[in-house]
């Protein structure tokens, strides 16, 4: 059940350039939240009328953790919020990753798509291989190492780990498993999806789109999905997603 709360901010620190790590007290939501779900965060500024969808990085011990990038006016407001202030949150939103009986998991995060993969990595049971990609130096790698069997790092500029993108790295290391989970830029998701097809491995992707209500009412945040008969229609990222099987997505 989704809830709207005013949560107390316990910390809100810049952990890398323009990347912030906010922890919020949210007893009920933290219990309820599944890996891959997101929250609508409200700015409280009258001129910014829409909430901002932010992925849940961790949900445990009554605390929600958001690791977000300052990219515009809304996230700029969040970045200036201080410990002790409260923030309005509507959560948990969306479906989250599907927990299947897969045993060997490949978890792929790119850029600001990395944070939701942390809670997922924690909760999955079995062998866990994590691949993190960033333009330059990435985030959260040390934390992933606590929960994963192996963590591979790729950076576009070679400043950390493998020089290149996550899919190049996966090819080079011949990463295999029985389920792939990915969150990141759309172009990365498309290439991860192609890799999954090559390896004949199932793949779940967490999609992003410009959103208004966040609960499925306004039909703003759509992505083109094909059903088992190949019929295409627009599905709502906020309610039908954000996680879809890559085989359903019509990649453009």
């Amino acid at each position: 059940m989704k809830k709207i709360i005013y949560g107390e901010i316990l910390s809100n620190d810049e952990i890398s350039t323009n990347i912030f790590d906010m922890k919020v007290k949210a007893e009920d939501i933290s219990k309820e939240a599944k890996a891959g779900q997101f929250a609508q965060l409200f700015t409280g500024k009258g001129e910014l009328i829409l909430p901002r969808p932010i992925s849940i990085c961790e949900a445990e011990n009554g605390i929600l953790r958001f690791v977000y990038m300052k990219v515009g006016k809304g996230t700029d407001v969040f970045s200036k919020m201080k410990k002790g202030e409260s923030i309005k949150i509507l959560a948990p939103c969306g479906n989250g990753f599907y927990m299947t009986d897969a045993k060997e998991h490949i978890i792929v995060g790119g850029g600001i798509g990395i944070p939701p993969m942390l809670e997922l990595t924690k909760r999955l049971k079995g062998k866990k291989t994590v691949i993190l990609g960033s333009r330059s130096k990435g985030i959260l790698a040390e934390e992933f190492k606590k929960y994963a069997d192996e963590v591979y790092i790729a950076s576009d500029d070679g400043s950390e780990g493998f020089k290149g993108n996550v899919v190049d790295l996966m090819r080079e290391k011949n990463i295999t498993g029985d389920m792939i989970y990915a969150c990141g830029p759309k172009i990365m998701l498309k290439f991860v999806s192609m890799y999954a097809d090559e390896k004949n491995t199932e793949c779940q992707v967490s999609m992003e789109e410009r959103m208004a209500c966040g609960i499925g009412a306004c039909v703003g945040c759509v992505v083109k999905i094909k059903d088992s008969k190949g019929e295409e229609s627009y599905k709502k990222v906020c309610k039908d997603g954000p996680v879809f099987y890559s085989s359903e997505v019509v990649w453009e």
Partner: peptide, 20 residues
């Protein structure tokens, strides 16, 4: 009806645009 392709939403000062 299938509606229009995304992006369908844009926030503007004190309001929003939609092309659902």
């Amino acid at each position: 009806w299938s509606g229009n392709p995304a992006p369908r939403i844009a926030e503007v000062y004190g309001g929003m645009l939609n092309s659902v």
